[in-house]
C-alpha cells in the first residue's frame, strides 16, 4: 500500500497560530502526517478542530492573522511552507489543486465557466486560446457535464449545485495536480448528489493518480472514500490509520466516542453514545491530553503530560492507553 513508496506530502510538526490582541493563539498544534502518491487521506474532526486550517496551510492560503508558526510542509521532496509568494502561487493549481465546500460561491458569477477554465489552463500550461478551450471542454466532459460544448459558455448561475461542484472539480484538475485538497466538497449538496460527487472524485483519483486530502466532518463520506483517516481534535492529530481499522475499531477514546455518536441505519434506535461537554476553543486547550476533561478512561498521566502518536492497531493514536507500560496494565479495545 501507500506507505512503502516515497511520500508525496510530508507535514511535520505543523503549528498554526493566530496573532490576536491578547497574544498568539495556537489553532493547530504539532500535526504530523504523510501522504503517498495517489492516496486518499480523510481528515475528520468537528468544526474548530483545525482540519480546514491544515488544508489551507498546505496550499498556502491561510488568511491573516493566521500563519504557520512552526514545522515543515514538504511536497515531493521540496519544502513549500516557506516559499516566496510568487513561487507558491505558481505551485497552487499546478501541483496542488483545491475544491471548496460551497459550489454556489466558489465560481465568479460574472464570467462563463469556460472563461474561468481557460484562464486557469493558460496560466499554468501556457496553451494557446484554441488548445486551452479544447482542454476546458475535455475537462468538462470528464467531470460529467452533459452537452459540455454548449454548457462551456454558460454562467455559473445557470448550473445546478451538483453541476457547479463538477465545474469546480474541473477547475481544480486544469493542470493535472498531484495533490487535491478537498475541503468539505459534499457538505453543501443534497444526499443523492453527494454520492455522485464522491464517485466522481474516486474515479478521477484513480484515473489521474492524484492524491486527495479529503477534509470533512462526515465520517460516512470518509468511510466510503478514504484509504486512511486522520482524526483531529482541538488542533491536534489524535489518531491516524487505515480507514477500515478506524471505523471498525477506533483506538483513541475520542474517535471511539465520535463513531458511537453517529446514528446508523439499521443500528439500535435507543440512545446514541454521547461525549459530554464540548471541544475546547483554541487558546483554552487544557494541559496534558486535550481530550482528558471529556475522557472516561483518563488517568493521572493524561492530566499533565501530552501524549504523542503511539502505535495502535494498524495506525497510531495520541493516547497514553497505548504507551507500552500502560497498555499492559489497562486493557483497551
Amino acid at each position: 500500500m501507500a506507505s512503502e513508496r516515497s511520500p508525496l506530502l510530508q507535514v511535520e510538526n505543523l503549528r498554526i497560530a493566530f496573532a490576536t490582541r491578547r497574544g498568539e493563539v495556537t489553532a493547530v498544534d504539532g500535526v504530523s502526517f504523510a501522504m503517498a502518491p495517489g492516496e486518499v487521506l480523510g481528515v475528520v474532526g468537528e468544526s474548530g478542530a483545525g482540519k480546514s486550517l491544515t488544508g489551507a496551510a498546505i496550499i498556502g492560503l491561510l488568511e491573516p492573522p493566521g500563519h504557520i508558526a512552526g514545522g515543515r510542509i514538504v511536497l515531493g521532496g521540496r519544502r513549500i511552507d516557506n516559499l516566496p509568494a510568487p513561487e507558491m502561487r505558481r505551485l497552487r493549481g499546478k501541483e496542488i489543486g483545491a475544491i471548496f465546500q460551497d459550489p454556489l460561491t466558489s465560481l465568479n458569477p460574472l464570467y462563463t465557466v469556460g472563461r474561468q477554465l481557460v484562464e486557469t489552463i493558460q496560466v499554468h500550461l501556457g496553451l494557446g486560446a484554441a488548445a486551452a478551450r479544447q482542454r476546458a471542454l475535455d475537462l468538462l466532459k470528464e467531470v460529467g457535464i452533459p452537452a459540455a460544448d454548449r454548457r462551456i459558455d454558460h454562467y455559473p448561475h445557470q448550473f445546478s449545485g451538483g453541476m457547479r461542484q463538477r465545474v469546480v472539480i474541473a477547475l481544480a484538475l486544469c493542470a493535472n495536480p498531484r495533490l487535491i485538497i478537498a475541503d468539505e466538497p459534499t457538505t453543501a449538496l443534497d444526499v443523492s448528489i453527494q454520492a455522485q460527487i464522491i464517485a466522481l472524485l474516486k474515479r478521477l483519483c484513480r484515473d489521474h493518480g492524484m492524491a486527495v486530502m479529503l477534509v470533512t466532518h462526515d465520517m460516512g463520506v470518509i468511510a466510503e472514500t478514504a484509504d486512511r483517516v486522520a482524526v483531529m481534535y482541538a488542533g491536534r492529530l489524535v489518531e491516524i490509520g487505515p480507514v477500515r481499522d478506524i471505523v471498525r475499531q477506533p483506538r483513541h477514546p475520542y474517535t471511539a466516542g465520535l463513531m458511537g455518536s453517529i446514528p446508523t441505519i439499521g443500528g439500535r434506535r435507543d440512545r446514541l453514545q454521547q461525549i459530554d461537554g464540548a471541544m475546547p476553543r483554541p487558546g483554552a486547550v487544557p494541559p496534558g491530553c486535550a481530550f482528558h476533561p471529556r475522557c472516561r478512561e483518563r488517568f493521572a498521566r493524561c492530566l499533565d503530560e501530552r501524549p504523542n502518536l503511539l502505535p495502535a492497531g494498524g495506525g497510531a493514536a495520541a493516547c497514553w492507553l497505548h504507551a507500552p507500560a500502560e497498555a499492559a496494565a489497562v486493557p483497551h479495545g
Binding site: 496550499i59 492560503l61 502561487r89 505558481r90 505551485l91 497552487r92 493549481g93 499546478k94 489543486g97 483545491a98 471548496f100 460551497d102 460561491t105 466558489s106 465560481l107 465568479n108 458569477p109 460574472l110 464570467y111 484562464e119 486557469t120 496560466v123 499554468h124 469546480v168 477547475l171 481544480a172 486544469c174 493542470a175
Partner: peptide
Amino acid sequence: RTDYIKFARARGLPNRLIHFGHALKN
C-alpha cells in the same frame, strides 16, 4: 473576502488577474 476570490487564488491565478479581472468587475 468572497469564496470565488479565494478559489481563484487556490487555482494559482496571478494577483493582477484576480484583482483587476475578478475582483474589480464584481
